[in-house]
């Protein structure tokens, strides 16, 4: 099975990357987009959901500063 692990900075944690993207928006004339948060996406193949979740907690995500969700692709 294939999944995508979507990782983003926890709510309330300043995300300078998101802010930098946001600051570029007015120069593009974009006005209706805001609250940008930049995270990471890890796509992987797995067989055991429990093992995948444990991998997320151990390596892919730092739970102190990041939230994540697992999205099944196929």
């Amino acid at each position: 099975m294939i999944a995508r692990v979507l990782i983003k900075p926890k709510e309330g944690i300043l995300d300078p990357q998101g802010k930098a993207v946001e600051r570029a928006l007015p120069t593009l004339g974009v006005e209706s987009v805001g609250d940008v948060r930049v995270g990471r996406m890890v796509e992987l193949r797995y067989e055991d959901r429990a093992e995948l979740e444990s991998l997320c907690e151990k390596l892919l995500v730092n739970p102190l500063i990041e939230d994540y969700e697992i999205e099944a692709v196929e």
């Binding site: 900075p9 944690i13 300043l14 300078p16 990357q17 802010k19 930098a20 730092n62 102190l64 500063i65």
Partner: peptide, 16 residues
């Protein structure tokens, strides 16, 4: 910090 030997985490500088 990642190893859990020290508390907390390091994030990108405020000014990037």
């Amino acid at each position: 910090c990642e190893a859990g030997l020290l508390p907390g985490a390091l994030l990108p500088n405020e000014g990037l």
